[in-house]
Every structure is written in C-alpha cells, then in structure tokens.
Design a binder for these strands. Structure first.
Lengths: 130, 130
DNA sequence: ATAGGGCTTCCAGTCACTGGAAGCTCAAGG
DNA sequence: CCTTGAGCTTCCAGTGACTGGAAGCCCTAT
C-alpha cells in the first residue's frame, strides 16, 4: 500500500504520515523503488495515533501509549496514569479559558461597538482597574 | 530605565521584552552605551500587551489593539469586532476541550488501573467501537 | 586590576506539523 | 518509444510566541 492510499484510508495527510515515520512512531517497509510500503498493522497504528491525537495526547504521550499497546505485559495502571495526567492538564486549560472568557465577555458586553472611540476593552487593557 | 528594571516592574521577562521590540511592538530608545532606554510610555505599552496576552489575544491582535489604543480616531466597533472574534475562538476551544474531557474521563473511569494489562483506554484508541 | 552582574547580539530549539522545490517512478495515451 | 501527468522521494524553511545558551561588551565595587 502506498502512502496515498494510506492517507485516504486513515484520513491523515501524507506529510503527517512521513513525519510520524521521521520521529519513529511507525516504521513502514520500503519497496524496491524506494516507495514506502505500508501493511495493515501500519494502518492500525496510524488510526491509533489519530485517535490519541484527537483526544489531545502529545506526540510523546502517543509514543508511550503505542508502546504500551504493543506490550502485552503492560499494567493498565500505566495507561491510566498517563490519561489522568492529561485529563488534569485539559481541566487546567479549560479553567484558564473560562477565566479569559468570563473577563472578555463582560468587556465585550460593556463596549458600545459604535463609531465613538470610547472603549472599556481598551480601558481594561490600559489598566483602568488599577 | 534598563531592561532589568522594566522586567521587574512589568513582570515580563527580558527575553520577551526584546522579542517584542524585535517584532516591532515597542520601540525603546537607546543609551550611548547601546543599552535599551525605556520610558514610562514603554512600560505602559508592555503592561497593555501583558494584559492582552493574558486574555489570550494573539500577538497580531495585540499589535492591532495597541494601534487602536493609540489612535484617537478609532471606533469602538473595531475593538469590539476583534474581541468578539477572539471570544468565539475561545468558545470553540473550550467546546473542543470539553469533548476531549468528556470522552477521556469516561475512559479513565472505566479503567481498573491495576497490574492487569486489560485497558479500555487502549481499547478505544485501538478502535474498539468500530 | 579584577570580579561580578547586567547588558548586547545571534543562533538554535520548542511542538506538531505544513508548504514548497527539485527530482525520481510509474501507468496511460499517441 | 516518447511524453505527460500524477504520485512518490528527500530536504529545507516557516508557523507562534517565546526560551536557552554562547560570546562578548559595559559598569560598578572592591
């Protein structure tokens, strides 16, 4: 299977697939002409990576998750630990974004948004509340 | 005022302040010895930038916001438009993170997290639901 | 005179790709 | 057999917003 077909079937761009090989996440074989020759197992791995990335795991997390997936002697606690840490990072990000959202939405509501120059958003950024 | 004092007073690292000058957000004068010579207005601008960045505005947004701040003929509608667009980007990010969080927290709950290899998290990543 | 800390510039690295250039390979049409 | 065009290859550079580090100048205190 050439990279184009893999890209179509996995939904991952060829560039990204090559990048994943570059950093050692997958190791497709090579045909005599130098083309990458993917097998079904490569496709499975790519699907795994795609789902892990969609859940927001970093590439390094993905690397570890993939190796745990292939390690039959793994302990589920190892996987859970990675997932829990990531979950808490997501929670932190959500909290931070919510705080931004809160402040910003108040400011937007307070701004007339007309042709006049007065603007509470700029006022806040300039340090009005100090 | 040298960069060290500015960094202390603004809470922005010297590296970042130099970077902001590099990309043209601030234009501090220079002393005879080549050191950057900051005035109060530079400090104000840096504080403005710091608050805008804390609200998640991109550097390019900050550049525009700063120029609007200094333009007395601005219309608040211009500012509001930028803020609203950013607000909606924040909402998108929150929604995306919440979806990740939702899926991931279910998986984490379903995982025993013990010494056994069975793991619904890996199962999901491997495509169990297909 | 020297030691230290602060300042300067420039280069490289981060993260996870993405775009583009130059060039090889392959299948189909004339 | 030749050309055309699509698909594949590698390599280099850019993204955003810094951050780390090296090499070297400047200033103050001892």
């Amino acid at each position: 299977m050439n990279i184009g077909e893999v890209a179509d079937r996995s939904g991952i761009p060829p560039k990204t697939i090559r990048y994943y090989e570059d950093i050692g996440l997958i190791r497709p074989q090579r045909s005599d002409n130098g083309y990458r020759a993917f097998r079904e197992t490569d496709l499975h791995k790519l699907a795994f990576l795609d789902r892990a990335r969609a859940l927001g795991f970093s590439i390094e997390d993905c690397r570890v998750l993939l190796s745990l997936y292939e390690d039959e002697t793994r302990e589920s606690a190892q996987v859970k630990a990675i997932a829990e840490e990531h979950l808490s990072a997501i929670d932190d990000k959500i909290a931070q974004l919510r705080e931004m959202r809160e402040t910003l939405s108040h400011l937007v509501d307070a701004c007339h948004g007309d042709h006049r120059p007065d603007c509470p958003i700029l006022g806040e950024l300039a340090g009005a509340t100090e």
